[in-house]
């Protein structure tokens, strides 16, 4: 079967600074749950932006469902890092989720019954339906993140892409989000960026380690030696709760 996301020899550099990505080749099959991990500044977000068509690679080729990223982005549901917009923006949970209907619904006027029904289902699935009239600014970090997942689901996506969806929330919220993603993975491909390799390895079907170039991509579980290669130093596992993280060896 043809992969749904396919990057071939992709390189990218910002105007200033060293190359962000070098010769990255990666194929994601339909139905996969891929964890994209790596150190800060390793190019994870850059790679996502290239797949979304927000950045164009300096060289190499990107295909999403056989099309260019710009043509295919309508079939992607995207969940950004939540810190990006103003917390005091006057918008309700339902209005936020409805924005996911853009691109599918007409541009003129208001939303139709069908749009509201899709949004309602997305909110029910992410368990924010009872919050729908609340202003976004009054929610907790975990709740906001689930609203953003609902907005992405309202796009009726074939692929769900999440950029550090749990960076600002506690372990319980993080577990809830990933339990939800596991469920969603039954009907869509998921790519999630994370720096917590220990935590996500319990959920994803495959991990891709990115530090400017793709160091490995292999099914879970991944061994310690892979993680050491990724961070370029000896590391050790430190258990926290029932998850675990890596720490540099003293």
């Amino acid at each position: 079967m043809k992969p749904i996301i396919e990057l071939t020899e992709v390189s990218f550099a910002y105007d200033i600074g060293p190359p962000a990505l070098e010769h990255v080749s990666l194929a994601v099959a339909e139905g996969e749950f891929l964890g994209l991990v790596g150190p800060n500044g390793g190019g994870k977000s850059t790679l996502l932006k290239i797949v979304l068509g927000l950045l164009n690679p300096a060289s190499g080729e990107v295909r999403v469902a056989g099309e260019t990223p710009q043509a295919a982005r309508i079939m992607i549901g995207y969940v950004p890092q939540y810190a990006r917009f103003a917390r005091d923006f006057p918008i309700s949970v339902e209005e936020t989720v409805l924005l996911g209907r853009l691109g599918t619904t007409r541009l003129l006027g208001g939303y139709g019954m069908a749009d509201r029904e899709v949004a309602r289902r997305a909110m029910a699935e992410t368990e924010v339906l009872e919050l729908r009239r609340r202003p976004l600014g009054t929610l907790s970090g975990g709740q906001v993140q689930r609203v953003l997942v609902a907005r992405a689901l309202a796009c009726d996506p074939r692929i769900l892409i999440l950029d550090e969806p749990t960076a600002n929330i506690d372990l319980r919220g993080e577990t809830e989000i990933f339990d939800l993603l596991k469920l969603l993975n039954r009907r869509m491909t998921i790519v999630v960026v994370s720096h917590d390799i220990g935590f996500i390895s319990r959920y994803v079907t495959r991990v891709a380690c990115l530090n400017r170039t793709l160091l490995c991509h292999q099914p879970v579980p991944i061994g310690l030696e892979v993680i050491e290669r990724l961070y370029g130093m000896p590391v050790q596992r430190i258990p926290h709760g029932d998850a675990c993280a890596m720490e540099r060896k003293p």
Binding site: P80, L99, L102, T105, G109, G110
Partner: peptide
């Protein structure tokens, strides 16, 4: 007429762009 795309552009420009606005 354009309250949806205006809201989208004000709230989250990147998401609006991804939705083809």
């Amino acid at each position: 007429m354009f309250r949806k795309p205006f809201l989208a552009v004000c709230f989250d420009e990147e998401f609006a762009r991804l939705r083809g606005v």
